[in-house]
Write a protein that binds this DNA or RNA. Structure first.
Lengths: 215, 215
DNA sequence: ATTATCTATAGATCTATAGATAATGC
DNA sequence: ATTATCTATAGATCTATAGATAATGC
């Protein structure tokens, strides 16, 4: 499990690693709320400090730039997403409606994390290039989990056989359909409940997976 | 055809409407390029003025705020998109593979406008609430065109009968699959050509439309 | 005496406008 | 004499840091 505090980490002036972890979490939580509400650029570092209940000076002991804060926020969100998706897959690993169950759980994760997913779509571009890269890798890893599920079901004949590329693209389609609930919610939410949405999209995906005349 | 220069338009100090139209186009073209390249917030009004080859003072004769410029850029992009989609639909109105043809044309429009579509995803939130609304209406109108196609084909039995909601949601799915080519291009572009993408996604959509066991 | 935190502000922007100048048309 | 354009800058930020103060642990 990668995490922004490991690996090529963000530098800090503070020695105690536990404290660093705690404060960064505290700052990131506050920042995430503000970024969702007003966007990254309209949120000031002072507002973040205030919302996290520390001084602006202290904040800059834990991060060196405002972009650092955005990156760690994105990373926390992806870690949370991945945890949710992995759990969903474990829960739904057996049984014949395995795919339907995974889809349901995944869509529920998207539903729960709606605001944050949307924020990532909007603000990834504000990150330094190196960290954009990382965010995209996180995105891809989540898609990879779904590729795994589809490949497994396809091999065990619980789904009709699909070639590798179709499987890959289907995984992307499912992931993006989850995101779609977040970025078209302004419309979909008025006409469909999350349950409607899951039911209809699951049916559509299953039709898509079971080779019809189009394939 | 709605247009930002009609209706409840953006105020200007300049009397000559032709000049206003010309200058705004000139400013919007320059701004669109910069917004794609660096994002809205990292582009300054001075840079826009410079790129449009007028002074900063003149720029503010044609717009009252920086957000105005973003709005008009989004509006031009949507007008262009809608024109593309409408043309596609006219070209592909007859014949048996009507849906496949429309999908191809629509995806090609997305391919062509890739950078701009991505920019709209990222920057819509930077608009004042009233104009966000308008951008979403534009988005919905484009989706509506596809709903029309699907409904027509469904009624004339060129597609199996699908209920209204499935048609609506399928239209959204197709629209978003076009957008997906723009916002996952960092991955998809490495593994699929636009032709691969169209072929595979068209097959998937057709399977989705032809009621399989999932429905 | 070391580590963490705070206050106060330097320095660097950036948007939007005021007032001066140039171009146009009667 | 009206309309369009320009230059120069006021006024309002905002990030990031320097230097002072408080808290902690030996």
């Amino acid at each position: 499990m990668r995490n922004a505090t490991r690996g090529d980490a963000i530098p800090t002036q503070v020695k105690d690693p536990n404290l660093v972890e705690r404060r960064r979490r505290q700052i990131a939580d506050a920042a995430a709320r503000l970024f969702v509400e007003k966007g990254f650029h309209k949120t000031t570092t002072r507002q973040i400090a205030r919302a996290a209940d520390i001084s602006i000076g202290s904040l800059y002991e834990y991060f060196t730039t405002k972009e650092d804060i955005l990156y760690i926020v994105c990373d926390f969100i992806h870690t949370e997403m991945e945890r949710g998706v992995a759990t969903a897959m474990a829960d739904a690993s057996g049984g014949r409606d395995a795919l339907a169950k995974v889809i349901r759980e995944y869509f529920m994760v998207c539903h729960r994390m709606s605001d944050f997913i949307l924020m990532i779509y909007q603000e990834t571009q504000s990150l330094p290039r190196q960290w954009q890269q990382r965010v995209l890798e996180n995105e891809l890893r989540i898609t990879g989990l779904l590729v795994g599920v589809l490949a497994r079901l396809s091999q065990s004949n619980e789904l009709p056989h699909l070639d590798e590329r179709s499987i890959e693209l289907t995984a992307h389609n499912i992931v993006v359909m989850g995101h779609m609930w977040t970025f078209r919610r302004w419309f979909l939410g008025k006409h469909y409940s999350i349950e409607d949405y899951i039911a209809l999209q699951t049916a559509a995906i299953l039709r898509m997976c079971t080779g019809g005349p189009g394939n």
